[in-house]
């Protein structure tokens, strides 16, 4: 069982994580969950049920595309992969996130001497 302390997701970050997860290689829904846990070092608490509405929303926005294929254990599964539009969006969001994180880090680490 998970023993590490888990962080709740900030609103809107799930979409970014999904885009990142499927940018590496096509994944089915459960695979997306496993991949996010893996790349985040198991530190994020992903509400499993809300993964699918997010996937459908991204598919509706043409950021990811879905295709039926075979899973590792030879079962029919729906695989999601990034579209060119999704790749562009991922790049934008990543840049935005990095700027935001850097700004937040800088702001929060400020000490009185630096003022």
């Amino acid at each position: 069982m998970a023993t590490k302390p888990q962080t709740e997701l900030l609103p809107g970050t799930l979409d970014l994580l999904i885009l990142k997860a499927v940018s590496l290689n096509p994944l089915h829904g459960y695979g997306v969950l496993v991949r996010i846990k893996q790349i985040s070092g198991d530190a994020l608490d992903i509400p499993q049920g809300s993964l699918y509405p997010a996937l459908y929303r991204l598919e509706q926005q043409d950021l990811i595309t879905a295709e039926w294929g075979q899973s590792d254990n030879n079962r029919k599964a729906k695989f999601y992969s990034l579209t060119p539009a999704g790749r562009k969006r991922l790049k934008q969001e990543t840049d935005g996130w990095n700027r935001f994180a850097a700004a937040m880090t800088s702001a929060l680490n400020t000490t009185s001497e630096e003022l």
Binding site: G29, Y30, L33, Q48, Y52, R75, K76, A77, K78
Partner: peptide
């Protein structure tokens, strides 16, 4: 189908 697959994999 998709959700059942998820639960079964899990």
């Amino acid at each position: 189908d998709e959700m059942r697959f998820h639960i079964e994999e899990h």
